[in-house]
C-alpha cells in the first residue's frame, strides 16, 4: 500500500506539472487500472484558476479587520516576552532531528579532534626520554602500534625496534646525567655477584628490594626495571626472563 501511495503521489505531481494522464499511466502499467480513476478525480478536483473575492468586498473586510486591530494597544515586549521568544527559538533548535544532527556533528568533530591531538602528541613525543612530560604518550602510542600489528614478523620487528629505542634512551639519560625510572630488555652478558652487564649496560643488584624471577643465566634474554641514578649507576628493582619472540 505504501508503494502505491508513493506512486499515486508521484503521478499527481506529474499531473500537476502538466503531464497527460494517459502518458502517466503508460509509465506505470502495473498500476494503471487502479490509478486511472484516482488521477481523473485529482484532475477534476484541481483548481487552477480560483475565483477572487471582488476587490470592493475584500476592501470592506480588510477595513473591518483593521478597525478591530486598531483597538489593540501596542505591547512593549516584557522580559517574559523576550524570554519566551528566546525559548521558542531554543525549542525549535532542539527538535529531535536537530538534536541528532548536532550529536552527529559534535561526535565527528570530537573524534577528528581527538585523532588529530593524538597524532600531534605522538609526533611531538617521538624524541622524549624517561622523565619527560610526553614520555608516557610515546609508550602508549608504541603499545597501540603493537596491538594493531597482526603480522607476526612485523610485530617481532617492531618489538626489536622498541627494545633498541629503550637502550638509546638510557644512553641519552646517561649523557645528560639525568635520573629516571627505566625499563629495557637485553642479553645478560656477564653475571657478577652484585653487578650484571646486560646488553653493555652495567646493572647494580642491591641486597634489598630486588626481585629476580626464573634464575636467569648468562646468555639469557632478560627484562630489567630499575632506577638510573645521576651517577649513571642503574639500580635494578626487578629482573625477569624476557619472552622470546616466536619466529
Amino acid at each position: 500500500m505504501d508503494r502505491f501511495e508513493s506512486i499515486l503521489d508521484e503521478s499527481i505531481s506529474a499531473l500537476q506539472a502538466g503531464v497527460p494522464i494517459e502518458e502517466i499511466l503508460a509509465e506505470t502499467p502495473d498500476y494503471a487500472q487502479e490509478l486511472r480513476p484516482l488521477l481523473y478525480a485529482a484532475m477534476v478536483l484541481a483548481d487552477p484558476d480560483p475565483t477572487l473575492v471582488p476587490s470592493e468586498r475584500k476592501e470592506i473586510l480588510r477595513d473591518q479587520y483593521l478597525a478591530q486591530a486598531a483597538e489593540l494597544t501596542p505591547k512593549v515586549p516584557t522580559l517574559n516576552d523576550k524570554t519566551q521568544a528566546v525559548l521558542s527559538i531554543v525549542r525549535r533548535r532542539f527538535t529531535k532531528k536537530a538534536f541528532l544532527n548536532d550529536l552527529v556533528t559534535i561526535s565527528i568533530t570530537l573524534s577528528l579532534t581527538l585523532i588529530m591531538a593524538m597524532l600531534i602528541l605522538s609526533f611531538a613525543s617521538r624524541n622524549s626520554i624517561p622523565g619527560d612530560f610526553l614520555y608516557s604518550v610515546k609508550r602508549i602510542s608504541e603499545n597501540i602500534r603493537l596491538s594493531v600489528t597482526l603480522n607476526q614478523d612485523s610485530l617481532n620487528a617492531l618489538e626489536d625496534n622498541f627494545h633498541r629505542e629503550r637502550l638509546i634512551e638510557i644512553e641519552q639519560l646517561t649523557q645528560q646525567n639525568r635520573a629516571a625510572v627505566v625499563e629495557f630488555e637485553g642479553t645478560l652478558d656477564t653475571q657478577g655477584e652484585n653487578l650484571w652487564v646486560v646488553e653493555g649496560i652495567t646493572v647494580f643488584l642491591p641486597e634489598e628490594g630486588l626481585t629476580i624471577d626464573s634464575n636467569p643465566q648468562e646468555g639469557d634474554r632478560i627484562k630489567v626495571t630499575g632506577f638510573l641514578r645521576t651517577d649513571t649507576v642503574l639500580v635494578a628493582d626487578q629482573i625477569t626472563k624476557a619472552e622470546v619472540n616466536s619466529p
Partner: peptide, 20 residues
C-alpha cells in the same frame, strides 16, 4: 499520503464509468 489515497479512492468510486 494515506489520507489523500483514501479520499481520492472514495471520490473515484463516485466518478462516471468512463474514467474506470
Amino acid at each position: 499520503k494515506a489520507l489523500q489515497h483514501r479520499a481520492l479512492a472514495s471520490l473515484a468510486r463516485l466518478m462516471p464509468k468512463e474514467v474506470h
